[in-house]
Amino acid sequence: MNEIGGAPLFFLEFGDIVIYFTPFTLTLFILALVFTVFVLVSRPERQIDIAFGGDAYYAKEISLSELRFRRFMSIACGLACMGAMVTGDVFDFTLFVSLVGICNVGIVAAVKSRHVQNAAYQYGLVALAGTVPMFSAAAMIAATTGTLSMLELAKGMILIPVAAKALLVLGVMGEGMAPFYAAKAEMFRAPGAPYVIMCSLSSLLIFLRVAEVILLL
């Protein structure tokens, strides 16, 4: 089961930390890269909404300061995502995933609307709580096996506790909850397609990667 994402294409070593690319991780990495480029070059859409009480409609605009902050957060999210997709170290993976969670909170919280910020606050609490099981999983794996290298762990020499795997999945679920908040009525009334999509994409990518990590360990 060592090649569940396809045969490794190449390894990039930074001391004992190894980044590796398989067809699976490379696909996810390229997608994260492509959407990060979209965030870089796109201006947000001007969302059409109706004026209640009549048949008029108007286009919403995003202020420059809000645009800059959300763009910054989205790019940071994209970079964290790319790191999470190719890292071969469990602790680095948890770090990148928690960074994705922080950036997603930032993307949502930057919208100047009380309802949207309420959604961001709720998501922030979930993301914060998600870090506890996630880092606990990394600590348990390190304590039981003596290594956090996925390539070493994938050899199957030492049994990894099922609880550690379960906690890792639970933590990623907490960090990846953003789309459920982004899909709330308050959020999708707020314009900013490339940034909102980054929330969904990053969450989806970390779910896909954790599925590979769990099958690998």
């Binding site: 090649e3 569940i4 994402g5 396809g6 398989t22 067809p23 699976f24 696909t27 996810l28 997608l31 959407f35 999509i197 969904s200 994409l201 989806l204 779910f207 896909l208 599925a211 590979e212 099958l215």
Partner: peptide, 18 residues
């Protein structure tokens, strides 16, 4: 190739629709 890649692409289609 790996079925996991097909799984990933199927899920990423959701982002495309989004």
């Amino acid at each position: 190739g790996s079925l996991l890649v097909i799984f990933a692409i199927y899920m990423l289609h959701k982002i495309v629709e989004h």
